[in-house]
């Protein structure tokens, strides 16, 4: 069996070159544009910063993994594309954060994503909430987006240059995620009686997990000036939510507050199956390249 380590031929180029020889068929061939845009490669994170990067990377990765389910199942084609876009952005953010987090222990982004167990994950439980119906997904995404937006806005000023750079790149994309979720909150709230009812149920179901997002942890004391103190983000979050809820004529749900614990490895029961599915193939072939 012959194997090669050389550059693969431009497979598509060959085909097109063979078959196009006239003016209408004169297409330019796409290059591999989806190069890995992972920020911070080559920089080693101090251990505490690595732990903090895990929080943010795991939030993004777990949400992306949840959203990936919708692709080919969305209510309309435009939403297959939009949700796919959001998932793609979040994977990009996760790759940067996890790659940076892994640098402290000499691990790659994939070792961080695929070879940590549930208790080693640091995602907040809001991101772990199941997709539910489209209204649940929108409610969760709206909260996630508003939180991440407030967070990245401030993280751009971090003393840690890599975190600041990841935040600066990510916030532009999260801006779109918030806009997407906001538009749908307005449509579902102001659409039909059914959509309004479902959205209200969606928000009621995910709201218990809001509180955890804004709790400070001991790590925040250690990383003053580097990490953003979550509690300080609450006013910006509340202001944004209040504005959208006012327009949608929604009320902030009242109910219980989940105990949380994602930042210390205590997770909602949805995370185990999510990771099992995500990691199954990688773990079947440890050390393999893909």
């Amino acid at each position: 069996m012959s194997t090669t380590t050389g550059t693969p031929p431009a497979a598509g180029d060959t085909t097109a070159a063979t078959l196009t020889s006239d003016e209408h068929g004169n297409i330019e061939l796409g290059k591999l544009t989806l190069a890995a845009e992972v920020i911070g490669q080559g920089t080693v994170a101090p251990p505490a910063v690595a732990e903090y990067a895990l929080w943010l990377g795991d939030d993004a990765l777990v949400l992306a993994q949840n959203l990936g389910w919708w692709i080919s199942r969305a209510p309309e084609l435009e939403e297959d594309i939009a949700i796919g876009n959001i998932a793609l952005d979040l994977i990009g953010h996760a790759r940067s954060f996890l790659s940076y987090a892994g640098s402290a222990s000499g691990r790659t982004e994939d070792e961080m994503a695929y070879f940590r167990g549930e208790e080693e994950y640091r995602s907040a439980q809001l991101f772990e909430q199941a997709n539910g119906d489209f209204a649940h997904t929108i409610a969760r995404n709206f909260i996630a987006g508003c939180f991440q937006h407030a967070l990245y806005e401030r993280l751009q000023g971090s003393h840690d240059e890599t975190l600041a750079a990841i935040a600066a790149k990510s916030i532009k994309e999260v801006d779109y995620h918030v806009d997407h979720a906001t538009q749908w909150v307005l449509r579902l709230a102001g659409g039909t009686a059914k959509s309004r009812r479902r959205l209200i149920v969606g928000f009621a179901d995910v709201w218990p997990y809001v509180d955890e997002l804004f709790r400070d942890e001991p790590l925040n004391d250690e990383l003053a000036g580097v990490a953003v103190r979550q509690s300080t983000l609450r006013p910006a979050f509340d202001t944004r939510v209040a504005a959208v809820f006012a327009e949608a004529e929604l009320e902030v749900p009242v109910g219980f507050t989940a105990t949380g614990g994602g930042r210390v490895g205590k997770h909602h029961e949805t995370l185990g199956p999510l990771l099992a599915e995500m990691q199954v193939l990688a773990r079947q072939f440890p050390g393999a390249a893909w």
Binding site: L34, A36, L61, Q65, G68, W69, I71, S72, L77, D80, I81, G84, N85, A87, L88, I91, G92, A94, R95, L98, E109, D110, A113, Y114, E277, M278, V280, L281, A282, F285, A288, W290
Partner: peptide
């Protein structure tokens, strides 16, 4: 959901999105 690396996952999502 089972793509074996994050890069492959991203490329696969982008591809399926292109199809839509």
């Amino acid at each position: 959901l089972r793509a074996p690396s994050l890069k492959r996952k991203a490329i696969l999502i982008a591809k399926v999105q292109d199809e839509a």
